[in-house]
Nucleic acid binder design. Sequence first.
RNA 1: CGGGAAGUGGCGCAGUUGGUUAGCGCGCUGCGUUAGGGACGCAGAGGCCGGGUGUUCGAGUCACCUCUUCCCGACCA
Length: 492
Amino acid sequence: MAKELTSRSDNYSQWYNDLVVKADLAENSAVRGCMVIKPYGYAIWEKMQHTLDKMFKDTGHSNAYFPLFIPKSFLSKEAEHVEGFAKECAVVTHHRLMNNPDGSGVVVDPAAKLEEELIIRPTSETIIWNTYKNWIKSWRDLPLLINQWANVVRWEMRTRLFLRTAEFLWQEGHTAHATAAEAVAEAEKMVGVYAKFAREFMAVPVIVGHKSESERFAGAIDTYCIEAMMQDGKALQAGTSHFLGQNFAKAFDVQYANKEGNLEYVWATSWGVSTRLMGALIMAHSDDNGLVLPPKLAPIHVVMVPIFKTPEEHSALVEKMESLKADMEAKGLSVKIDDRDNLRPGFKFAEWELKGVPCRIAMGPRDLASGTVELARRDTLTKDSVPQEGIAEYVLKLMDDIQDNIYKKALDFREAHTIKVDTWDEFKEKIEQGYFLLCHWDGTTETELKIQEETKATIRCIPSDSFVCEEPGKCVYSGKPSARRVVFAKAY
RNA sequence: CGGGAAGUGGCGCAGUUGGUUAGCGCGCUGCGUUAGGGACGCAGAGGCCGGGUGUUCGAGUCACCUCUUCCCGACCA
């Protein structure tokens, strides 16, 4: 099955090469682990962007942009934060090159050393809070609700296409609030936005919950997350939202005058999703024939393939297709006519399946005569003969059906691979088989780490919407008392 | 940074105990026949075999060095 992003199978590499290629600079490849996103793949990302951006704006946020470079000193102002990111930072030390005196090319000009090194942002909390210091003076300036679309760099030791690239695209929201309660509500609201996006647009069922202490974001008081199950049973953290308390406000001295005229530190949140979502989309829905895109994120909803022998047939078919296309486009559908005359229909069918286009309409002389089309859906790979009359309405409804169906398929898969486990033996057995395990846990980091050491499984989250199990029990590992079940799984 | 594997046309690979002109599939170009599930024929283009140094009459093949990539760990969204 084409589920592994790193698979080398011909079929697989063919279709992910349509989305992305790894940067391939032959020598001294410093850009290893970065990706080139090709137009078709980027179109999917843009769909995600536009949808999320609208959701952010609908919840009162505005976009802004902050610098790529962060002075080194900023990073050290929040102790936990620097500890979390210090090991994976790209650092700019010089600002000029020069011709090598020996004529062998260019070298870094030693005279151009920066007084203070610049860090290429691994995340923007520090530079943004340094800016917020100047923006926030009064309670009237709050809440400050800002989002940034940007690229960030994390110099990971090991990269993985889409899931952990050295450079990735994301959005990061950074908000400031007058009260802790308001900030917590914001963090919860935004994880809710992510959950809604994953479920309704990506058609990926997710579990919303809190991270355990050891999985928490560096510098956060509380981290909320959405966790998705991939087709191999492994978990993928698809988005996070953090309640940062006053940690960054204190580190960057961001205070406001409240209504009584007293200075108070503001309360903060940050939240983000990245191109990792592309990986989630791919690994959640793909099958052996390639990508399966949910209609709401598909750059192309319908591809039309003419089947013809002669140029006359071709032009008659394309003419008819143009009129059907216009009908469908009038309903907001994105339609492509594949009128390439050097490829056979079968080849085109396979190619568009590889790209995950939800619906294919094939038309030949027979259809032209009978006023029908052959309509195939990507999710079920089934074909039907459908009248041309009313095709736009038909396809519009089909898009909803497909969207629902692939969500349901993913949900059924997750339900079938999520079980309550109460004994350690069963835990070890089931975790190997790719299950989400709902287990009691004694709440200690010590136990969590031991479980991870023995099984590679981690606490994905302490669920707060689905799979909430507020029932007393005994920790599956230590036997100590526990108030609720948490989700254990192996993760990407 | 540890443990494995691999570098040969754009992609995927073969290449025997060293032997002469380095092959195959896909893709690409041209012409023709085809066309309702990845067509076929013919004719072409494209490679100093990752790099270096050795051994040898002779190196894709052997030795040493080096660089890079992939997989498994540590790290992580």
